[in-house]
């Protein structure tokens, strides 16, 4: 039930974004998007270390990707 609600919310958000906010960007206009600082995660290492801390100290996790690999962190 919660899964369907989350998927529905994702769909609605996508429609809103598609319908209201998207501007056409031509291939030759992608110079800014190609910069490292404009990547979704400019530093994989920073994100890796941050998530290790947050997931060790909080009850919530997920949202960023899939896979496995944990620890018995205190």
């Amino acid at each position: 039930m919660r899964g369907r609600a989350a998927a529905g919310a994702l769909g609605v958000l996508l429609l809103l974004v598609q319908g209201c906010a998207v501007q056409e960007v031509k291939p030759w206009e992608r110079d800014l998007l190609a910069e490292r600082r404009m990547q979704l995660e400019p530093s994989a290492l920073d994100a890796f270390l941050d998530l290790h801390i947050y997931i060790s100290k909080e009850a919530a996790s997920g949202g960023y990707g899939v896979g496995g690999g944990g620890c018995g962190c205190n």
């Binding site: 960007v25 979704l40 995660e41 994989a44 890796f48 290790h52 997931i55 060790s56 896979g67 620890c71």
Partner: peptide, 24 residues
Amino acid sequence: MQLNHVRRALASATCALLGGHASA
């Protein structure tokens, strides 16, 4: 403890790097 940190960070980062829109 529930930890799936290793993959999530890397998957996120790699998808970002591979993203077709900002693929440099």
